[in-house]
Design a protein around this nucleic acid. Structure first.
Length: 485
RNA sequence: GGCGGCGUACCCAAGUGGCAAGGGAGAGGUCUGCAAAACCUUUAUGCAGCGGUUCAAAUCCGCUCGCCGCCUCCA
């Protein structure tokens, strides 16, 4: 398995620090507002990585944090006139609600900054003692120039950055690049006792404390959005390695942004969609599929049209699923071998290797999806050749097993077709109930038996106008929800 | 200004040296009472442009053009 490591700028073989085990940390969210789909991308990408690593037999410990104390939270609380911890609680709940709807699983440990104040203080104290940090009026700063490797993750040169000087200058600091490990609290602000007086942790130190506690001083994979590379991860790396004297993270993994009209989706530009907004119009599976249809490091342009395309693709999957189910239900004594059998069998036996190969190569979900659709096409082709007999059934059963297995890793295609259509009934706001539809199908079936094609077509048209498509099969008609309307 | 990335068909999108995955849309066809679904054929002698290296380049190197990101909070 290989992964692109931001630290080295190359794809590298994944060799766990402890054979058979993976320690993995992903930066979660600061709980001061509702999540947008950029947060969803990060959450989904690392959820799938975790699932795949497990699928490959690794014992994964996945940690994802909450930043529940921060200036933004304090500001938000001030604006809303509520306590800071109420803000944190509220948006933590919102986060869970969004993730649950999205189908993103919980991490193995979900630590909060405020639950690690003791550990944070211990690290800050250690850094002061080791001479990497200095105290100023109750604040503690990390002195960047003391850490020779500073800039190695984001490929930045400290001198260049100083020359650029877009950093807010606090005259008291020894260097503008120095960053806060501990911030003294003003009257009325949340605070914890510390050797430097009442205060709260700086932004980056919490991750060092939490990773160290839950994954050890060195661990395998650290992930997050690409916008966290600098300064957050750079600072995290510096303070962690300065404190322990050991390599902090083996593989740094960063996901690309979601763009709108080619521009990064962000709070400040205001061009963002919340997870809720999207899930009102699309099933969570559609968003997941869409996000996995592009490699995780590439930017992905967000639009309704793209989500509709994803919807069509998913529908193709469930349509095929129904075909395979129908096929397996029909008992077939007579054996009919077709010319399609051999190529189909070959594809089935090579599929899982190719799927693994795709996912092994830096979690190439887009390529993996391509393979899944190749399998779907071949399964349909095989069924079109009208085979029958035990062997044919075994092949189809194997195909659906492979689809379930690969879909399971990607956390897609995990519904039953019925559930997919139920979901579409809701998101497409179909005005008919299932009973309405079945009643019309029954009436149409009578008309068809009378060979009253006009009447049959009128009923079909009526359903079609409301977004329901009928398919006539040899033993009756079935309905589906129309996607493109 | 410094650093990094991207540009593949009508659209989305894989592909880091050896015949250009996959999906959508379009056209034609098979099947069907007609449809739908499915399948088949078709749609890039070509990968932003120009040079170079190589037996061989979308892939490596150089330059040019265009777009974007980070350098400040950000998934």
């Amino acid at each position: 398995m290989r992964v692109y490591n931001t630290l080295t700028g190359k794809k590298e073989d994944i060799v766990p620090l402890v054979p058979g085990k993976i320690g993995m940390y992903a930066c979660g969210v600061t709980v001061y507002d509702v999540c947008h789909i950029g947060h969803a991308r990060s959450a989904i990408v690392f959820d799938v990585m975790r699932k795949y690593l497990r699928f490959r037999g690794l014992d994964v410990k996945y940690v994802r944090n909450f930043t529940d104390i921060d200036d933004k939270i304090i500001n938000r609380a001030r604006q809303e006139g509520v306590r800071w911890d109420e803000v944190a609680k509220k948006y933590t709940d919102e986060y869970y609600a969004d993730m649950d709807r999205l189908g993103v699983g919980r991490a193995d440990v979900e630590p909060k900054a405020t639950e690690h104040i003791t550990e944070i203080i211990a690290i800050v104290r250690g850094l002061v003692e080791k001479g990497y940090a200095y105290v100023l009026d109750g604040d503690v700063y990390f002195e960047v120039k003391k850490f020779g490797d500073y800039g190695k993750l984001s490929k930045r040169d400290v001198e260049d950055m100083l020359a650029g000087a877009r950093v807010e200058v606090d005259e008291r600091k020894r260097s503008p690049m120095d960053f806060a490990l501990w911030k003294s609290s003003k009257e009325g602000e949340p605070s914890w006792e510390s050797p430097w007086g009442p205060g709260r942790p700086g932004w980056h130190i919490e991750c060092s404390a939490m990773t160290m506690k839950h994954l050890g001083e060195s661990f395998d994979i650290h992930g997050g959005g690409a916008d966290l590379i600098f300064p957050h991860h750079e600072n995290e790396l510096a303070q962690s390695e300065a404190f322990t004297g050991k390599p902090f993270v083996k593989y740094w993994v960063h996901n690309g942004f979601i763009t709108i009209d080619k521009e990064k989706m962000s709070k400040s530009l205001g061009n963002f969609f919340t997870i809720k907004e999207i899930l009102d119009k699309f099933d969570p599976e559609v968003l997941r599929f869409f996000l996995l249809s592009t490699h995780y490091r590439s930017p992905i342009e967000f639009s309704d049209a793209s989500l509709r395309e994803a919807e069509v693709s998913i529908d193709r999957y469930y349509t095929t699923w129904i075909r395979t189910e129908d096929f397996l239900k029909e008992s077939s004594e007579k054996v009919k071998t077709t010319a399609e059998e051999k190529p189909f069998e070959d594809l089935l036996s090579s599929f899982m290797d190719k799927f693994k190969e795709a996912m092994d190569d830096d979690f190439n979900t887009a390529l993996a999806l391509g393979l899944i659709f190749e399998l779907i096409r071949e399964a349909n082709k095989f069924l079109d050749s009208r085979p029958s007999g035990q062997k044919a059934m075994e092949l189809i059963r194997k195909a659906s097993d492979l689809l379930v297995q690969s879909g399971g890793v990607l956390n897609i295609f995990n519904k039953k077709p019925d559930e997919w259509y139920d979901a579409l009934m809701l998101t497409k706001k179909i005005p008919f109930s299932k009973a309405d539809i079945l009643e019309r199908i029954r009436r149409r079936q009578e008309a068809r038996q009378r060979k009253d094609w006009t009447e049959a077509d009128v009923i079909r048209k009526e359903l079609e106008d409301q977004g329901i498509i009928l398919e006539d099969k040899k033993n009756g008609s079935v309905w589906r929800v129309m996607i493109n309307r």
